[in-house]
Amino acid sequence: MGLFDSLRRKRGKDRPGTLRQANKQDTSHLDEWANTRTGVEAYVEPRTNVTDTTVVLVAHDGEWTRRRIADFDAALEFGRKRQIPVYEVARVGYPKRMRDYMARQKEAGGS
């Protein structure tokens, strides 16, 4: 047994630096969230070295949530099934109402 063998065996799914894939809990959260808000739009954030592809759902009042999604095509399909417009954050940025919502939350002492 070599000096680094034990380190090699620890490589696995919950190891720091390993991206977690989107799962059913992520999709369920997005479904429930979208079904309980009005004016929802989806903003897809591309995969980076640190995070997998994510989708930010933004309601009419700027309230938002973020979860992982498999890829851009999965986000398009999610939006198509729910009649939600889907945008690429890299192209259009985040909506002003989202920034306004965060400012209101900060002002009110929320998170």
Results as ranks from 00 to 15, higher is better:
residue 59 A to L: 09
residue 23 N to G: 11
residue 104 R to F: 01
residue 49 N to F: 15
residue 43 Y to L: 00
residue 29 H to S: 09
residue 78 F to Y: 03
residue 88 E to I: 08
residue 90 A to D: 07
residue 82 R to G: 06
residue 110 G to D: 12
residue 69 I to L: 01
residue 92 V to E: 10
residue 17 G to M: 02
residue 21 Q to N: 13
residue 64 W to P: 00
residue 90 A to V: 04
residue 89 V to I: 06
residue 106 K to M: 06
residue 62 G to Q: 01
residue 53 T to G: 06
residue 107 E to T: 05
residue 106 K to Y: 14
residue 73 D to W: 06
residue 27 T to Q: 11
residue 8 R to H: 03
residue 13 K to W: 05
residue 99 R to L: 09
residue 85 P to K: 04
residue 70 A to I: 06
residue 1 M to R: 15
residue 101 Y to D: 01
residue 11 R to H: 09
residue 83 Q to R: 12
residue 30 L to Q: 03
residue 37 R to T: 00
residue 18 T to C: 10
residue 98 M to V: 06
residue 105 Q to F: 00
residue 10 K to Q: 14
residue 67 R to H: 08
residue 82 R to K: 05
residue 63 E to C: 08
residue 47 R to A: 10
residue 10 K to N: 09
residue 60 H to E: 15
residue 100 D to T: 00
residue 41 E to G: 08
residue 84 I to M: 09
residue 80 R to Q: 13
residue 103 A to I: 07
residue 55 V to T: 03
residue 19 L to F: 10
residue 104 R to Y: 02
residue 55 V to F: 03
residue 69 I to V: 08
residue 36 T to H: 12
residue 37 R to Q: 13
residue 84 I to H: 06
residue 23 N to A: 05
residue 46 P to R: 09
residue 89 V to Y: 02
residue 20 R to T: 11
residue 11 R to E: 07
residue 11 R to P: 05
residue 45 E to D: 08
residue 22 A to E: 09
residue 4 F to L: 11
residue 33 W to K: 07
residue 86 V to C: 03
residue 33 W to F: 00
residue 63 E to Y: 07
residue 96 K to H: 07
residue 90 A to M: 10
residue 23 N to V: 08
residue 110 G to E: 08
residue 100 D to N: 04
residue 60 H to V: 04
residue 19 L to R: 12
residue 101 Y to K: 01
residue 81 K to A: 14
residue 20 R to C: 10
residue 94 Y to W: 09
residue 105 Q to Y: 01
residue 27 T to R: 09
residue 23 N to T: 08
residue 27 T to C: 06
residue 18 T to S: 13
residue 61 D to L: 03
residue 36 T to E: 07
residue 82 R to D: 04
residue 106 K to E: 13
residue 33 W to N: 06
residue 6 S to C: 05
residue 42 A to P: 00
residue 31 D to L: 08
residue 26 D to Y: 03
residue 74 A to H: 07
residue 6 S to A: 13
residue 15 R to I: 14
residue 61 D to C: 02
residue 13 K to R: 07
residue 14 D to L: 05
residue 76 L to S: 11
